[in-house]
Computed example of a mutant assay.
Amino acid sequence: MHSKRFLVRRTVAVVAAGAAALVLVACGGDSDGGDGQAAASASAAQGTYGAADVAFAKGMVPHHRQAVEMAGLAAGRARSPEVKKLAEDIEKAQGPEIETLSGWLVSWGEEVPAPGAMDHSMHSGTGGMMDAEEMDGLKGLSGSAFDTAFLRMMIEHHNGAVAMAEVEQADGAYAPAKAMAGDIIASQTAEITRMNDLLGQD
Rank of each mutant, 00 (worst) to 15 (best):
G29Y: 06
D30N: 05
S31R: 04
G33R: 08
G33W: 03
G34M: 07
D35T: 10
D35H: 04
A38E: 10
A39D: 14
A39N: 08
A39C: 02
A42C: 03
A42W: 00
A42N: 10
A45T: 07
A45E: 13
T48C: 04
G50H: 01
G50F: 00
G50N: 14
A51W: 00
A51R: 09
A52E: 02
D53S: 06
D53K: 05
V54I: 09
A55C: 07
F56L: 02
K58N: 07
G59D: 05
M60H: 05
M60F: 05
M60T: 10
V61G: 06
H63N: 06
R65G: 09
A67L: 03
V68T: 10
V68D: 07
V68L: 09
E69L: 13
E69A: 15
M70N: 07
G76I: 13
G76M: 15
G76T: 15
R77M: 10
R77C: 06
R77L: 14
S80D: 15
S80N: 13
E82A: 14
V83Q: 06
K84W: 03
K85T: 15
K85N: 12
A87K: 03
E88Y: 01
D89I: 11
D89C: 11
D89W: 01
D89T: 15
I90G: 04
E91Y: 02
K92W: 00
Q94Y: 08
Q94F: 02
P96K: 10
E97G: 09
L101F: 04
L101R: 01
L101W: 00
L101C: 08
L101H: 03
W104R: 06
L105Q: 02
L105D: 03
